[in-house]
Design a protein around this nucleic acid. Structure first.
Length: 586
RNA sequence: GGGGUCGUAGUUCAGUUGGUUAGAACGCCGGCCUGUCACGCCGGAGGUCGCGAGUUCGAGUCUCGUCGGCCCCGCCA
């Protein structure tokens, strides 16, 4: 080894030892007759002192520059009285250099890497990701990521699970996200698809009798990206045989409840995790992934304003819509400009106009105040429990649009009013999802979760008569407004599975061609089974207090799916394309 | 696919109603300095104002297009 000690771990117990350090030059402080070098490795910093009276180290120390890779050999000594640096774990000691070897010089780095990186344009950070990753923030994030995944592997191993790898090159499935595809050279005109998740494979492992499976699984989906969505991402993929919903929830809840204190002891969780139905979540929070860290719940004003002279409300109700609101405490003073921003937010969420009511010392103000009767205003005050200083934001529209708009407003007020404690992780379960949702474009029912999700047995008879009323055995884990995991009890009965495919609009021929392998497998003793798949990037993002998942992924892609370091995706050589039997047409 | 926003020195930014040689801080380079740790002091270099058209006597500034980053809607079984 070129080093005997880690920089950040040097301390007074090493005084007197001859040590070799190797690392990067973080900063050089040249006092003319004395030079200090801060040497950094993965463990942290150590101060090296070059004195002209000691060896030939000094002449090298005059030449070295930031980010040079150096090897330093010398003796550890306590720092002189009054020069101890209490901000540095190794701050009580320094290494008096006898020799300094330049292992590799460095050009001046294009971005500062001795800060958090939050001031630097992300384009350049991603182009020079190997430098960006040198900063302690990202090293800390990736280290925590490692510990989290290590904990999960150990926990599941102890619980009797086995990790099994599944192929990356499989077959395109018609439903769900767009697939990334890989052309076959050996079979012209045919393509593999990269897995959106190992869903079918893990179910087939249950048929194969493995009972408890997990995998740290990479998933690929060719859809547009967000701060919490990358084209490839990592799931803790889990599947179990002979389980019911509560067994899966208990496993994941136990895992997380032990994980958090082990890896991020400064974080608080609420135990046990609250369980809420999809319907209740939509009613109270307007979202299927509510942020449970604060209240500001939605109240229903539909009955209170039925037949109102305010046509914005009465028209919406007549058209089958609802009138609902949230109350923002202490926001009655909001200016026209503030309200314009909120209105625009609601509009971009796809809801109709925002109406407001403000409880001010001078009485009721706001866009809805004039046209509402005193009786209506009284009823609204009672229902919402609003008091002086409060601002009610009211939306009248189709139920889905109202939910969308109020949910967006609720999160906006969360951030504006700083309503959430930073150390709280508010996990919760959302259960009892509808089996299907209506696709207006395709004019057909589509799976809300995925087509292998089991309907609730008591709803089986409504599959054909009333698909919209069928509930599924699906469940989501949410935390702080993010969907962190999604899972379900699966179908293991061939005939039920075939019925679901039919409900989704497939004919027998299509079912056999696309899903024949699943139906066949279910005919050979498929056990009852279910599973779940927590999204690791999002979970790690929350545990690292990062605002997006790019900060917890070593080499992430941009919102347009580019890798700015590799400059991927890129064109292929014509020869390469010919081999793959591919012609570019536009 | 749609909307918003940003792009000026290596980095972060300023740049007035369109008008002289486009500035600052940090970083970088050189000099001085034996206890600094955001070392200090003195000096210096460094610019395709993302790119391309257009308007104008004159464009960093205005218009159009285009490329790229970020955020949001759609999308993400």
């Amino acid at each position: 080894m070129l080093k005997t000690h880690n920089c950040g771990e040097l301390n007074s117990s090493d005084v007197g030892k001859n040590v070799k350090l190797a690392g990067w030059l973080q900063v050089r402080r040249d006092h003319g007759g004395l030079i200090f070098l801060d040497i950094r490795d993965r463990s942290g910093l150590a101060q090296v002192t070059a004195d002209p009276s000691v060896g030939e180290a000094f002449s090298i120390a005059e030449k070295v520059r930031t980010e040079y890779v150096l090897q330093v050999e010398g003796k550890v000594r306590p720092r002189p009285e009054g020069t101890v640096n209490p901000n540095l774990p190794s701050g009580e000691v320094e290494v008096l250099a006898r020799t300094i070897t330049i292992l590799n010089p460095s050009k001046t780095v294009p971005i500062p890497i001795d800060d958090e990186g939050d001031k630097t344009d992300e384009t350049i950070r991603l182009k020079y990701r190997y430098l960006d990753l040198r900063r302690p923030r990202l090293q800390k994030n990736l280290m925590l990521r490692h510990r989290i995944i290590k904990f999960m592997r150990d926990y599941l191993d102890k619980a009797g699970f086995m990790e099994i790898e599944t192929p990356m090159m499989i077959k395109s499935t018609p439903e769900g996200a767009r697939d990334y595809v890989v052309p076959s050279r050996a079979q012209p005109g045919k393509f593999y698809a990269l897995p959106q998740s190992p869903q079918q494979l893990k179910q087939l492992l249950m048929v194969a009798g493995y009972e408890k499976y997990f995998q740290i699984a990479r998933c690929m989906r060719d859809e547009d990206l967000r701060g919490d969505r990358q084209p490839e991402f990592t799931q803790l993929d889990i599947e179990m045989s002979f389980v019911e919903r509560e067994d899966v929830l208990a496993l994941v809840e136990g895992l997380i409840t032990e994980l958090i204190p082990a890896v991020t002891p400064h974080k608080r969780i609420i135990s046990p995790f609250p369980v809420m139905t999809y319907g209740e979540a939509m009613d109270r929070f307007g979202s299927d992934k509510p942020d449970f860290r604060f209240g500001m719940e939605i109240t229903d004003l539909t009955d209170a304003v039925r037949g109102s002279e305010l046509i914005l409300f009465s028209d919406a109700i007549t058209a089958g819509g609802t009138v609902k609101c949230i109350v923002a405490p202490g926001c009655s003073h909001y200016s026209r400009k503030d309200l314009d921003i909120l209105t625009e937010l609601v509009r971009s969420a796809g809801a109709g106009n925002l109406a407001t009511l403000a409880w001010t010392p001078e009485g009721m103000k706001g866009t809805a105040a004039k046209k509402l009767s005193q009786a209506e205003l009284d009823r609204i005050s009672t229902i919402t429990q609003a008091k002086e200083g409060d601002l009610a934001c009211i939306i009248a529209d189709r139920p889905a649009a109202v939910a969308k708009g109020l949910s967006a407003l609720r999160l906006e007020f969360r951030d504006r009013l700083k309503l959430v404690p930073e150390d709280l992780l508010a996990f919760g379960w959302i259960v009892d999802f509808p089996m299907f949702e209506w696709d207006e474009d395709e004019k057909q029912w589509i799976s809300m979760h995925h087509p292998f999700t089991s309907p609730r047995v008591e709803h089986l008879d409504k599959l054909e008569s009333d698909p919209g009323a069928v509930m599924s055995d699906a469940y989501d884990l949410v935390c702080n407004g993010f969907e962190l995991a999604s899972g379900s009890i699966r179908i293991h009965d061939r005939d039920v599975q075939a019925k679901i495919f039919k409900s989704l609009g497939y004919n027998n021929e299509e079912i056999q061609r696309r899903f024949g392998h699943m139906l066949d497998a279910f005919e050979y003793g498929a056990p009852p089974h279910g599973g779940i798949a927590p999204g690791l990037d999002r979970m790690i993002m929350l545990l690292c207090d990062e605002p997006n998942i790019r900060e917890v992924i070593a080499f992430p892609k941009t919102a347009s799916g580019s890798d700015l370091m590799f400059d991927a995706p890129a064109e292929l050589e014509p020869k390469h394309l010919r081999e793959l039997h591919i012609k570019i047409t536009d």
